[in-house]
Write a protein that binds this DNA or RNA. Structure first.
Length: 345
DNA sequence: AAATCTGGCAACCGCCGTAAA
DNA sequence: GTTTACGGCGGTTGCCAGATT
């Protein structure tokens, strides 16, 4: 039903509030409460629309508003709640006393979202980004760097890049296919067949995959090299990839599968109590695993001028957390086959 | 030192749901 | 049942200060 904007009336002031206006609003609400917001401006002697007054009060002047930097606990709470609620800022704000939805929204957009992206996570799903395009900038940047150092022919570079991109796309698609159905958004009537998965595996020709295939075949005393690998083999083959299994540590029935845990956001890489997180990465693997997606650019350890290396943005300037921690141990970075022949920096 | 760029944040805009007339 | 008023919400904009060139 059409309703004209409340601020259509001409002559009403817009823009930043002056201290005088603030005082009038505070005084009026202290004495009379806000009552009807529409009627308030006249009663308070303000040349503003009611909506503007309400926003000013709820987002800035309310006495119970907590201002200042967000604490680590607040940050973690926002992350956890956002993974469950999405952009329901008011719902998130209701769990953070003294914080307004607007403040949380701004904090998310200017800090947390960028941080997640930089770490290689999709800020909406809180899961590792699986699209090839999200990784391409990394690949291109690293390849260009290598080209500068070695200066082989352009044709050679282009061909190699093409092959690598294709290989990576296949890997990521395969990982997507291997996710438990509960974690995929795909129509499960169209689940991939084992044949489809095997075809993909067989088409992957990187040394990493070949090595693992060999290992698997040997360890299982499989004398028939032509015998197709079963699903168990597939699991072993990709055991270096983080499983997408969800390990909730409480009885909540969250539908999404957030991957971000407190330790990932720890400022100094120390391991925090994983029980503090709503979700954990599975702990079954015996050795740390490299990421299933291209590692974030902050793997290249920063000198003072490293901001320009950061993919996408420079959220290292975050006022609350200092440099962001990588969830991938340094010694495993660049271990992905894709990055094997790129010199470490 | 000046110009330009960038990030942070307050405020606005437009839509939605609900209640009242 | 329809219209209107209102509060609330999420997305977006625009200003400003600090950083960079």
């Amino acid at each position: 039903m059409g309703r004209s904007p409340c601020c259509d009336e001409s002559g009403l002031k817009k823009g930043p509030w002056t201290p005088e206006e603030d005082q009038k609003l505070i005084k009026h609400i202290k004495n009379h409460g806000h009552g009807s917001w529409r009627a308030l401006p006249k009663l308070a002697g303000l040349n503003r629309c009611g909506k503007s007054c309400r926003l000013r009060w709820t987002n800035y002047l309310r006495p119970d508003i907590k201002r200042g930097k967000f604490s680590q606990e607040e940050e973690q709470t926002i992350l956890n709640l956002h993974s469950v609620l999405g952009n329901k800022w008011s719902a998130i704000a209701s769990h953070l006393p003294g914080r307004t939805d607007n403040e949380i929204k701004n904090f998310w957009n200017t800090h947390l979202k960028k941080k997640l992206i930089q770490m290689g996570f999709d800020p909406m799903t809180h899961r590792p980004r699986t699209d090839i395009f999200s990784s391409l900038p990394h690949i291109i940047a690293l390849a260009s760097l290598k080209e500068l150092m070695e200066n082989p022919s352009w044709e050679e570079q282009a061909l190699r890049l093409q092959a690598e991109a294709l290989q990576m796309a296949k890997c990521q698609y395969l990982q997507f296919l291997l996710q438990p159905p509960s974690l995929t958004n795909i129509n499960h009537n169209n689940n991939p067949t084992e044949i489809e998965i095997m075809n993909l595996i067989n088409s992957l020709s990187s040394p990493l995959f070949e090595n693992q295939m060999m290992t698997q075949n040997n360890s299982s005393n499989n004398n028939n090299p032509l015998q197709p690998l079963g699903t168990d083999s597939v699991g072993l083959l990709f055991s270096h990839l983080p499983s997408l299994e969800v390990v909730p540590n409480n009885t909540s029935t969250y539908e999404t599968a957030p991957f971000i845990s407190k330790e990932m956001f720890s400022q100094n890489n120390e391991v925090c109590d994983p029980n503090n997180s709503l979700w954990q990465l599975p702990s079954s693997s015996t050795a740390p695993s490299p990421p299933s997606v291209a590692p974030p650019m902050n793997i290249i350890h920063d000198g003072p001028s490293s901001n320009s290396n950061n993919y996408g943005d420079a959220c290292s300037s975050s006022s609350f957390g200092g440099s962001s921690a990588s969830i991938w141990p340094d010694h495993l970075l660049l271990e992905d086959a894709l990055f094997h022949d790129i010199p470490s920096l």
